[in-house]
Each structure stands twice: as C-alpha cells, then as structure tokens.
Design a protein around this nucleic acid. Structure first.
Lengths: 218, 218
DNA sequence: TAAAAAAAGAACTAAAGTAGAACATTTATA
DNA sequence: TATAAATGTTCTACTTTAGTTCTTTTTTTA
C-alpha cells in the first residue's frame, strides 16, 4: 500500500483535478505535500505510477490522471468509531447496579453483578460505590422519587443526618436518614406519611451512604 | 485459523488502509497490537503471508495489501468486542454545563462553554443536550431540588405535561411543566407555594425538555 | 522444572524522503 | 518563430524511517 507522503500527494492531485479541472504542477505539489524539492515529488509520482494509482501522458506538462484512490470507509462509520473512542475514555466510572432498595434483602445477597452503570466522576471519589434503584415514596421530601437511581458509597459508619442504606435485622435494606440517639438508632423517612423507626443498635447497620441521585425522564 | 494476535494485526492493517489510505509501519503496528518489538510484528506478518491473508510487494516499505479477512473471529476477540459494546452502552457523554436556570437570561446568552459535565449515555440519546444547575424550589414536588443538575435536550417544541426549559419574554429562563391550553400556555410549578403562570404563546417559547436529574451529596 | 513458544532487544540492511543543482522539455508570447 | 518562463527530469549526496535477522530474555505449558 501507500506511504503517508504518497497518499497525501495522491489525494492532493485527485482533489485538484476534480476542483480546478487540471493537474497541479510540481511546484504546487511541493507546497501541498511539504517537500522542498521537485525531485522528491518526482520520486513520489514514479512510485504512484508503479503502483498504478496514476497514469502519465509522457512528454506533457500537467498531464497526470488518477486511476484509483484507496478505499475509504463511509464517513458515518468513522464518526461512530470516534464516538466509541471518546466514550471509552470519557471521564466517568462504572459502578455495579445491584437492584432495588427497600426490597427486603441485604445488599450483598442481591449482587447480581454484570449490570453496571456509568456515573460522572465527580460523584464517585475515593471509595467503593454501587447503585440501587429506589422503590417507594418514603424519601420524597428529600427529592428522592420512586424509580430514581441512588449512587451509594460503601461504608459501615454514618454521621447523623446523612442518608444511608440501612440493613435492618439482617434482612431488610432501606434508604433513610440516619440518626444515632443515646441508646437507639432512628431511621427517619422524608415523608409525612411514614413514621420514624426506632431501633436498637444491634438491629441495624449501615451499608452505605447516599452520594448521588440520578433520574431519567422519558 | 488465526491466533488472536494475528487476527488483531490483520484487522488493524485492513482498517488503517481503509481509513488512512496507507499501510501502517511496524512501529504503528507494535502500538496497535501491543507488542514491544518489531521482530514480533515481523513474525506475525510472515505468518499472515504464509496463510495468504496479506500480500507484500517485495523490497518496498509500507507495501502490504490485505487479500482476505477471516470469516470467524477468534473467541477472545469476540469477548473483547462484547466488552466494548457493553462499555459503550453504559458509558457516558460530555455535555456543556451552561449555568443556572431561573437566572433570568436566555440559554444562548449564557453559553459560557468549556465547562462540561459527563452524563451516563442512557440519558443522552439522539439530539443535542446541555446541563443547567437548578436554582430555587419551584419544582420541589417533582423531586427537583435547589442545586440539582438538570440534563436538558434542546428542543423548540414540547408535549403537555413535560418539564421544559421555557424562555419567557425572551429574557427569563425557567424550568416548569408545560401545558398548552386553547389560547394560552401554562407554566406550572410543582410547589403549592408557587402559582401557575398563564402566558400568551408569543410571550414564551420552549428551549429544551428535561431528560434527567443528577444530584450530588457531600 | 525443563522444553517450547513468545516476546524483547540490538545490530544491521534497505527503502523512503530531503535537498539542491543542472539540464531538458513544453508553453506562452513578444 | 525565437525566446523567456514555466514545467518536468535526472543526478548526487545525505538523513530519516522502515524492515530484517539474530541473540537473549521471559513466559507458557506439558
């Protein structure tokens, strides 16, 4: 196949003929390809002739003809491939989507891996993250709606007032505001219609802290 | 059949010729296949020639031609491509962040580009997207809180009930539910404390449709 | 763990590209 | 049509890039 210079020259010749109707001179080719001597152009053209990309009418000036040009991919395919590359290197992280929360099962148990979700980097700093789909209305006053995706940072501890994934009695996972009182843990919903749950510390443990919400409208 | 490396190299050569019009050099192939020595490439190419997948013009540089490509891909290549597809599906795109909404300026005017945000691909399908930071509480009952990032699809039209970026009197941009009545446009907030604005169609136009919400907790 | 295969690296050979000048041919025009 | 200007060809010498071969090292795998 062609070398880069050969290719550049070939395309330049082809373009000029199509655009201006006549073959460019060696001087013009020098400019276009970035070579300072005509002899270089000559050598390139000899190669192109040998490889049957162009034909020359001997003893004529500006008398080159392009026989063929290398095959091209349709432009949309190139565009698509560019997008893929961009997508792959763009600044987001993959986190596993574990399923729905409030579904009454501890997180570890669900873990039907493989489903992943990409989230913007600014949501996931240091630490291990995962995502859950919110089910129910208990946090609606905090702007967390049924069906939203919750981005969670895995953690065993939480500070008062943080929204956490709490595992109650080792069986029920729920998203609530965490409050540690003297002898109790309070799990506060954000919805007047739901009641605060008061639990003994041994009945409940933190599985993660809410770090982000993502919602999609159709 | 071909080994994975052979296959990868063959496809790279084929692609490069189609895309760039000229044959890649051994150095470029090293990069592409992930081999650190030219001799390795040489060996692979010898194999490809022997199995008649490529042809070489002797004593020429960059003079490989692909004769045929295999019908079946080696298994690990298939695996790899699956991964790329998956990554693409769940990967993310960059969209510009234009500033705050309800700030009283038309979107076009703000457009202080350069700030971009990455959002999961599943939020941005076909179309042109941008992001705005929500200011105010007027949509709080729709789970849209002060400070949230709204992912908007540029559009001049909207359907009843969609949440839109509406430009009022060419000066004030606001996020509201869009309702077209007989002779009026209603912009409905989602907050009991705010009132519906009734406007003449000439006073208001759609600038985009809400497609997603992203929120970050600290 | 020893033999075989793959990969890396160094050293070498070959091809491609650069540059300038001299020269040959074609084309425009005085 | 003679001649200048433009264009194309060939040569030499050199630099850079590309390709080949062989030896050593690493990795695989039986």
């Amino acid at each position: 196949m062609l070398t880069p210079k050969q290719y550049k020259l070939l395309m330049f010749i082809d373009n000029t003929i199509k655009e201006k109707g006549c073959c460019p001179s060696y001087e013009e080719m020098k400019e276009a390809v970035g070579i300072k001597s005509k002899s270089g152009i000559h050598a390139l053209i000899e190669e192109l002739i040998e490889r049957e990309f162009v034909r020359k009418i001997p003893h004529k000036a500006r008398a080159l003809e392009v026989i063929k040009t290398p095959r091209f991919k349709p432009r949309d395919i190139i565009e698509e491939e560019k997008k893929i590359k961009l997508a792959l290197q763009s600044s987001s992280a993959q986190i596993p989507l574990y399923g729905k929360i409030a579904a009454g099962t501890p997180i570890e148990a669900i873990a039907y891996e493989n489903e992943t979700l990409s989230v913007p980097f600014n949501m996931v700093e240091r630490g291990e993250f995962y995502a859950l789909q919110v089910e129910g209305e208990s946090m609606i006053e905090a702007g967390i709606m049924d069906g939203d995706i919750a981005v969670i940072k895995r953690s065993n501890v939480a500070e008062n007032g943080q929204i956490v994934v709490a595992l109650v009695e080792e069986s029920e996972a729920t998203l609530k505001v965490w409050r540690k009182k003297k002898d109790e843990i309070w799990l506060e919903p954000c919805n007047k219609d739901y009641e605060i749950r008061r639990l003994h510390p041994s009945q409940v443990r933190v599985q993660g802290i809410l770090k982000g919400i993502m919602r999609k409208y159709h």
